[in-house]
Write a protein that binds this DNA or RNA. Structure first.
Lengths: 240, 240
DNA sequence: GCGCACTACGTACGCTGTACGTAACTAGGA
DNA sequence: TCCTAGTTACGTACAGCGTACGTAGTGCGC
C-alpha cells in the first residue's frame, strides 16, 4: 500500500519518477500546465480534479498518483507561473530593479488573474519561488542592509503588488461567478451608495464622491503607491 | 413568483421585513451572528448554508428567504464584524489616529481570522464599512489633501494590514484544513528548504537563513512596516 | 523470473450550493 | 369582512465537488 501521505509531504521533495512501476503518462509540468490553462480560461473555480483530468485525457483518480491533495495542485500552479518571471543582470540601481520586479509581478498577475488568490507565504519556497527570491536578493546586492531587512522589503513589495492587483481585478473576477454582468452589479451598488450618501450621515464620503477626479489611471495609481513604498525604505536614494 | 434575483441586488437595499407574509423568524443580524460564530470556531470553510441553518435551528432553504446567495452571507459577515470597529473623537494627531485604526483592524482580524480572506473592495460600502470610512476621513480632517488622496491612504493602510495579518495567520489557518499539525508541516518544509539551499544554487538565500535574527517579534515587524508606510505619505510630520 | 511497488481508474460516500414545489400565514384592497 | 396575492418555511432533488478504497495491469530490482 502506498500509504497516501498520513504524514506531511512537500510535493517538491517527491521524485517525479518512482523506481518500480510502469512509467507515468505525464510529468508534473503537464499537470500544472493543464490546470493553469483551465484557470486562465475559466477562473480558479473551474479548476477541479475532474476538469484537469479531462483536460489531460485521463481518469480523475489518476491525478492522485501525481498530486496527493488538491492543495498541492495549487502549489504546482503557482510554481509553474512563477517560472514565467524573467531574470536579468542587476543594473546597479536597486530601486529601478525593484520597480521592474514589481511591474513584472503585476503583469504576471494580470495574465493569470487567479494568482493573487493563491498567493501564500506557504508556497514561497517552491523551486521557481526560490529562483525569484534569489534574483531579488541579487538585485539588492549593493545595498547595505541585513538580509532580514531585504527579505522584508521584497515581502512588502510583493504584498503591495498582490493587494493592488487584487483590487484591480476584484470586480472582474467576481463577475465570473455571478449570473449578471459586472456593469449591472456596479450600477446597482453605486445606486445604493448614492442613496446612503444622500441621507447625509456620511458628509465626508459624500464630499469624496463629489470630487470626481475624472477617469482613474490604474497604472499611475499603482506606480505612485509603489514609489511611496520604496521611498519608505530609502527616503532619498540612501541605503535601506 | 418571487423571481429570486435574475437581476443584481445589494442586500442592504432589501428591506428586512416585507409587507405581506408571516413575520420572519430571524433578523439579518441573527444570521450574520450565527455565521460569524461558526467561522470563528471552525474556520470559514465550516460556514455552509446547512451549518448556519442548523445553528439557527431552521431548515436550510429558509435561509434563502433572507440571503439570496451565499456570497451575500459573506457580505453580511464582513459587515457584522466591521461593526466591532470602535470610533473615537479624532485626536488632532492624524498619524496617531491612523496607527490606532490600523492596530484596531489588526486586532479585529486576529479575533476573526477568516476576515482577511473575505476582504474585498466590493464589500467596501456596507453600512458599517461606510461608518468606518467616514471615521477614518474624520481623523484626517485637519490634513490638507484631496479626499482622493485620503481614500488612497486609507486603502493602502487597510491593504498593508490585511497583507500582514494574512501572513501572520497563513500557516495557522492552513493547518485547520490539513490532516497534520502546523509544526509537522513546517518541519518538513524547512527540511526541504534546507536541502535546496545546501545545494549551493541559492547563495544569498543561504546567507539569509544563516543570519538567524533570533525570535521574530511579529508586533514589532508590523509596527515597523506601518510606520514606513505612514512615513511614505508624510515624511516628516508634514501634511500629505 | 518472481514479487512487489507502482500506475491507472471505476465506484462510491459525504459534502456542497441551490432550483423547485408545497403548505401555512398575513397584510392590503374590495 | 372576506379574498387573494405575496411571503415565509422547508423538504426533496440534482449536479458538482474532493477523495477513500478496491482492482487490474505493468515493469524494475532482487
Amino acid at each position: 500500500m502506498a500509504d497516501r501521505a498520513a504524514v506531511p509531504e512537500v510535493i517538491w521533495a517527491r521524485p517525479e519518477r518512482a523506481g518500480r512501476g510502469p512509467k507515468p503518462a505525464f510529468r508534473r509540468a503537464d499537470i500544472a500546465a493543464a490546470a493553469v490553462r483551465i484557470a486562465d480560461g475559466g477562473g480558479l473555480d473551474a479548476v477541479s480534479m475532474r476538469h484537469v483530468a479531462a483536460e489531460l485525457g485521463c481518469g480523475t483518480m489518476s491525478l492522485y498518483n501525481y498530486v496527493p491533495r488538491k492543495e498541492d495542485l495549487y502549489e504546482l500552479m503557482v510554481d509553474a507561473v512563477s517560472g514565467e518571471h524573467e531574470e536579468w543582470e542587476p543594473s546597479g540601481d536597486w530601486r529601478a530593479d525593484m520597480v521592474r520586479v514589481a511591474h513584472q509581478t503585476r503583469t504576471l498577475m494580470h495574465r493569470h488573474p487567479w494568482l493573487p488568490r493563491l498567493m501564500s507565504p506557504v508556497y514561497g519556497f517552491s523551486p521557481n519561488a526560490l529562483r525569484y527570491l534569489e534574483h531579488c536578493l541579487a538585485c539588492l546586492d549593493g545595498v547595505e542592509a541585513s538580509y532580514g531587512t531585504k527579505m522584508q522589503l521584497v515581502g512588502l513589495l510583493n504584498g503591495v503588488v498582490t493587494m493592488y492587483v487584487t483590487n484591480e481585478l476584484a470586480t472582474a473576477e467576481r463577475s465570473r461567478s455571478l449570473p449578471w454582468s459586472e456593469e449591472q452589479e456596479n450600477a446597482v451598488r453605486i445606486a445604493y451608495l448614492g442613496s446612503q450618501i444622500a441621507g447625509g450621515a456620511y458628509p465626508r464620503m459624500a464630499a469624496a464622491f463629489m470630487e470626481d477626479p475624472g477617469p482613474i489611471d490604474l497604472d499611475a495609481v499603482f506606480d505612485m503607491a509603489l514609489g511611496k513604498v520604496l521611498d519608505a525604505f530609502a527616503p532619498r536614494g540612501a541605503g535601506l
